[in-house]
C-alpha cells in the first residue's frame, strides 16, 4: 500500500525548466530526510529522464509525489509525454543504445539509480516513466 503524502505537478517545456525542476525534486527529498547520496541519485535519474522527455517529445508533465509504504518514505516521479513513443522498450533499456546522439546511459542508468522503475509507451501517443526512490533504498 503506497500512501501519497504530498504532490505537485510541473510542466517541462524548455531546457531552462530543468534546473528549477531538479530543485523542486530536491526540496521533496530533503523534506522526507533522504540521505545525500540517495538524493543525488534520485535527482540525477530525474535529470536524465526529463532531458529525454525534452529531446524526444519536446517536453511533458512531471508528477512529483512524496509517498509512504509501511515504515519507509520515498519519492515517486512520473514523467508523461505526448511524444512519438518508443517502439522497442527492451532495446531502449540496453546500455549504450541511443537513437539520438547521446551516450545512451539515460534510461538504463536511471533505472540503476532508483529502486523502482516502470516504463510504458504507445507509438504515436507518448511515453510514461515512473520511478520510486526510497529514503533508505
Amino acid at each position: 500500500m503506497k500512501i501519497v503524502l504530498n504532490k505537485d505537478t510541473m510542466k517541462i517545456e524548455k531546457e531552462q525548466d530543468v534546473v528549477p525542476f531538479r530543485n523542486r525534486v530536491k526540496e521533496y527529498a530533503v523534506k522526507i530526510n533522504m540521505g545525500l547520496v540517495n538524493q543525488t541519485k534520485l535527482i540525477t535519474a530525474a535529470s536524465e529522464l526529463v532531458r529525454n522527455m525534452l529531446k524526444y517529445a519536446n517536453g511533458g508533465i512531471v508528477l512529483i509525489e512524496a509517498i509512504s509504504q509501511g515504515r519507509d518514505n520515498g519519492i515517486r516521479l512520473t514523467f508523461q509525454d505526448k511524444g512519438p513513443g518508443i517502439s522497442d522498450i527492451s532495446l531502449a533499456m540496453k546500455d549504450g543504445y541511443s537513437s539520438g546522439k547521446s551516450l545512451g546511459v539515460g534510461l538504463p542508468g536511471s533505472k540503476r539509480l532508483v529502486n523502482e522503475f516502470d516504463i510504458k509507451s504507445t507509438i504515436g501517443e507518448g511515453t510514461t516513466v515512473s520511478i520510486i526512490k526510497w529514503k533508505n533504498g
Binding site: V37, Q39, T40, K41, T44, V105, R112, L113
Partner: peptide, 10 residues
C-alpha cells in the same frame, strides 16, 4: 555523492 552516482549511472 556525485562520484557514486556517476559510477552507478555508468
Amino acid at each position: 555523492a556525485v562520484a557514486i552516482t556517476l559510477i552507478e549511472l555508468g
